[in-house]
Design a protein around this nucleic acid. Structure first.
Lengths: 222, 222
DNA sequence: GCAAAAGTGTTTTCAATACACCCATGG
DNA sequence: CCATGGGTGTATTGAAAACACTTTTGC
């Protein structure tokens, strides 16, 4: 545990894992148990070994280190500021991961040695290192992707209501959307399909249930 | 010059520099003078030193190694396949660079120790390493960017005709565009401004000269 | 006057936006 | 019956796409 400076460049991966929990989009963070930044929150990740790709490495982080099911992942950006870490020179390649809450709850293993918590993307706690900047970039990346693709379907694998889906778009993009126009767009462009079922048992009129159309071609929304 | 395997991970940068030469979009490649891949064409780049960021490093490549003026650069993707290099483990962070031909010709220095050539983006020569795959990804990235931003203005710093500009969109996107609709879109969205001048001295009717509107807000074209 | 290349206008279709009222359920 | 939340329709505006003829120059 010395602070001897290594004269080689190290590479780490970092992942922002997003899920939807009770209608809110959340990002998973890990509480750091050792100095530096002890007690601060950081993105999960680990150093790259010589015998693994960045993608293999981040899959390991997800499955082995975090005890989560394997999930959809995209590479985002590589950060290389000189002072990212105190003692060593460390590059960080960042990823987003998307996992639906049902799979998450079913398949996750509780690991006792790490402290994980899901945070609202606009209420990020005090972060260690430059992870605040990295999270900002990951959220910007996610915004672009939900506009120019239909990756949100990963977070909605089963039936959902349009108001639920709309609230997620509104949270991520940080805008207000007209309910009627939202419905028209998603349905007319063929992104979602009416299942014929409704969502009963809540206050107010039951909402129709939809699912994502696997055949829909990706378009720019908004 | 041994082939001893180093047990650390190295990081290199690679850049696809694009310019427009006689109405064609071109990418700059470098002929490799030593084994492995002697005589093959590769993207310019170099290994990352411990005291520079990826962006500093790639700027050095452009200015010092290639003798080109400093230019507009964006990071694209980090490649980490295990077998990218034969002897060492080398990650590659790739960039695109954009430079207009006028600045290029004015400010480049001829360096005798490197062999550079501009290639049509659809006629890439035999490449060393995995640079063919990297070039493919860089071109895909460039496609996205010319659709969702106005970065093409970097390649057209001075007056240009709409047919010239259209041909570049057509080449990069690999599509045919209707002349009338193209003009309507670019002019109506405020991307380009009529300078009042015309381009005389060529066959056929002289074309009007336009320039990019610095104030135009970025929109999705096509 | 002919070839080459550029400019222009109209129509149709579709998406984007703005906006207000009715409906189905739970309590 | 009322509160809650969801569903629906219309009108306007603007962009997208398809399409053919005219204009200006060089030779």
């Amino acid at each position: 545990m010395s602070s001897m400076k290594v004269d080689t460049i190290l590479v780490e991966t970092l992942i922002g894992i997003f899920t939807i929990d009770k209608g809110k989009i959340k990002i998973l963070m890990m509480r750091k148990k050792t100095d530096p930044y002890k007690g601060y929150w950081i993105l999960p990740g680990k150093f790259l070994n010589i015998d693994e790709t960045l993608e293999d490495n981040i899959t390991d982080v997800v499955c082995d280190k975090l005890g989560l099911p394997s999930m959809y992942i995209e590479q985002c950006y590589t950060f290389s500021n000189l002072n990212r870490h105190m003692d060593n020179r460390v590059l960080a390649t960042s990823f987003i991961g998307l996992i639906d809450n049902i799979t998450l709850v079913l398949k996750k293993q509780e690991l006792s040695d790490i402290e994980l918590e899901w945070f609202d993307i606009y209420s990020i706690p005090k972060t260690g290192y430059d992870h605040d900047k990295i999270i900002f970039k990951l959220i910007e990346y996610l915004k672009k992707r939900i506009i120019n693709s239909n990756i949100l379907k990963i977070l909605f694998p089963s039936d959902f209501t349009l108001p639920e889906l709309q609230k997620i778009y509104e949270q991520i993009l940080n805008v207000q959307i007209d309910r009627r126009n939202f419905r028209k767009k998603l349905v007319n462009l063929g992104y979602v399909i009416d299942t014929g079922d409704v969502n009963e048992g809540y206050m107010g009129r039951p909402a129709k249930l939809y699912r994502f159309n696997e055949e829909a071609k990706e378009r720019n929304l908004f």
